[in-house]
């Protein structure tokens, strides 16, 4: 489980309080107005922002004092997930060894990961020769191969059209379920939250509220969420 213990995040004047727990294997949507701190929350888990107060735990281990690469975390950004000068296979290989020196077994698992996202025949293509959806799949293959317990998705695939985005999200669901990963996803779209996540956190007014079951939350939204949704 992922636990925020009296966490205060601070960036200049901006403050965000987080104090709750998420069960292992959950899929969590992070929603809220822009500038409320959704990405800030993910940055703190990933290790790009140190908490001003409080601690973050994964299971029983404290993670907020570890460097990003040591945390049980893998992250997908909105874009720029891939390096333009590397092939799809090399981009995935970075997840195993950043210097790209792989043994035979590792090479095989890279191929396996590309197969699983349906890009087995595209291993030697560079990102420029792939479509937006295919680029997302390569990034997903890298997340798979890193085999980390926590997946952080910062508005992933939001540059894609609605149909393709839904397809990518269901692929992520499937992959996360198979590997037992816990997923935190920032999204602007309540539909994405309902479709993808069993829990939802509403970030507003300096607080990331405790996770609620998505269906229950959207069936009877509290007043601030109603204002955000415009319903």
């Amino acid at each position: 489980m992922l636990r925020f213990e009296n966490v205060l995040l601070q960036q200049g004047q901006f403050k965000l309080r987080v104090d709750w727990t998420l069960p292992r294997g959950a899929r969590l949507a992070v929603v809220g107005p822009s500038g409320a701190g959704k990405s800030t929350l993910l940055s703190a888990v990933a290790g790009f922002l140190d908490p001003y107060e409080g601690c973050i735990f994964w299971e029983t281990a404290r993670i907020d004092d570890q460097p990003p690469a040591k945390r049980p975390v893998t992250m997908l950004f909105q874009d720029h997930n891939l390096f333009g000068h590397l092939t799809a296979a090399q981009n995935v290989s970075l997840g195993l060894n950043p210097s790209l020196k792989l043994n035979a077994e590792q090479t095989q698992s890279v191929e396996g990961a590309l197969d699983r996202v349906g890009l087995g025949n595209y291993a030697d293509r560079r990102p420029a020769a792939l479509s937006g959806g295919q680029q997302g799949r390569v990034a997903l293959a890298r997340a798979l191969i890193r085999n980390r317990a926590l997946w952080l998705l910062d508005e992933p695939f939001s540059a894609l059209g609605p149909g393709l985005r839904r397809e990518m999200l269901s692929l992520v669901s499937e992959m996360a379920e198979n590997s037992g990963a816990t997923v935190l996803m920032v999204t602007h779209d309540p539909d994405d939250a309902v479709r993808f996540a069993d829990y939802t956190v509403f970030v507003n007014d300096g607080v990331a509220q405790a996770p609620k079951l998505t269906n229950e939350l959207f069936a009877d939204p509290p007043i601030e969420l109603r204002a955000y949704l415009g319903t």
Binding site: G47, F48, P68, A69, V73, T74, M75, F77, H80, P98
Partner: peptide, 16 residues
């Protein structure tokens, strides 16, 4: 892009 720099940290890039 800052995402790629963060990606580098997340993947454990050293100076080389």
């Amino acid at each position: 892009p800052s995402e790629q720099v963060r990606l580098g940290h997340a993947l454990g890039f050293g100076p080389s």
